[in-house]
Computed example of a mutant assay.
Amino acid sequence: MRDNLYLQLIAVFAPLSLLSIGGGQSIVAEINQQAVTIHGWVTQTQFVDLFAISRAAPGPGALLTTLIGWRAGGWLGAVVASLALFVPSSLLAYVATLVWRRHERHPWHRIAERGLAPIATGLILSSSYTVLRASSATWAVWGLALGALAVFMTRPKANPLAVLFCAGLLNIVAGRFA
């Protein structure tokens, strides 16, 4: 039974590893779908809790995968899920970097860079929407999320920690008047 679980973890997270353009945040929506709806490794509430822990903990944002693997299959599940997520994309990144550097001066190089940016942005926005929708977010939290989006759209180089801090303060203020 456990062997089947570990193969399922690999079957889910290895392909997602190759889709994680823009980082682990870009595949959160599909991780939610797979872990909650399809495989039932965690409940929706547990998923939101694990997501919050993965954001608060130091380390890579893809820690969510490790936590889901741990909930589904203990320590070995955590290791299997982590390796399934990190190894394929790491190998792909290594090979792609070799090819990318080799062809830096070709015209398609810049076109490819411009084409990948909106894809990564769309995946990250989809993940953010999924987490907001799954949480017990109030209208104030949705408003803060849209406000943060507006800040990053108008000031793309804004410090995310400063925006997060301001959003937290505004949420505290909104909570006092609610």
Score class of each variant (00 low, 15 high):
residue 117 A to M: 15
residue 15 P to C: 06
residue 123 L to S: 04
residue 103 H to I: 04
residue 125 L to V: 12
residue 68 I to V: 15
residue 136 S to Y: 06
residue 110 R to P: 03
residue 83 L to T: 07
residue 98 L to E: 13
residue 79 V to N: 03
residue 178 A to E: 05
residue 47 F to N: 04
residue 83 L to M: 10
residue 19 L to Q: 13
residue 94 Y to E: 09
residue 23 G to A: 07
residue 44 Q to D: 14
residue 80 V to S: 10
residue 89 S to M: 02
residue 157 K to L: 10
residue 100 W to I: 10
residue 49 D to S: 10
residue 27 I to A: 00
residue 12 V to M: 04
residue 53 I to L: 15
residue 163 V to Y: 02
residue 114 R to D: 10
residue 68 I to K: 04
residue 121 T to W: 01
residue 84 A to W: 00
residue 66 T to A: 15
residue 113 E to T: 11
residue 60 P to K: 02
residue 48 V to S: 11
residue 89 S to A: 15
residue 109 H to F: 14
residue 127 S to Y: 01
residue 157 K to D: 12
residue 160 P to C: 01
residue 79 V to D: 02
residue 36 V to R: 01
residue 100 W to D: 00
residue 84 A to E: 01
residue 109 H to T: 07
residue 117 A to P: 00
residue 35 A to W: 00
residue 78 A to Y: 01
residue 155 R to K: 14
residue 105 R to C: 07
residue 137 A to W: 00
residue 2 R to C: 11
residue 78 A to V: 12
residue 113 E to G: 13
residue 155 R to L: 14
residue 27 I to W: 00
residue 142 W to Y: 13
residue 144 L to G: 10
residue 22 G to Y: 02
residue 149 L to E: 01
residue 63 L to T: 10
residue 113 E to D: 14
residue 107 P to W: 08
residue 151 V to W: 06
residue 136 S to R: 07
residue 177 F to T: 12
residue 104 E to H: 10
residue 3 D to C: 04
residue 29 A to E: 04
residue 130 T to G: 05
residue 115 G to F: 11
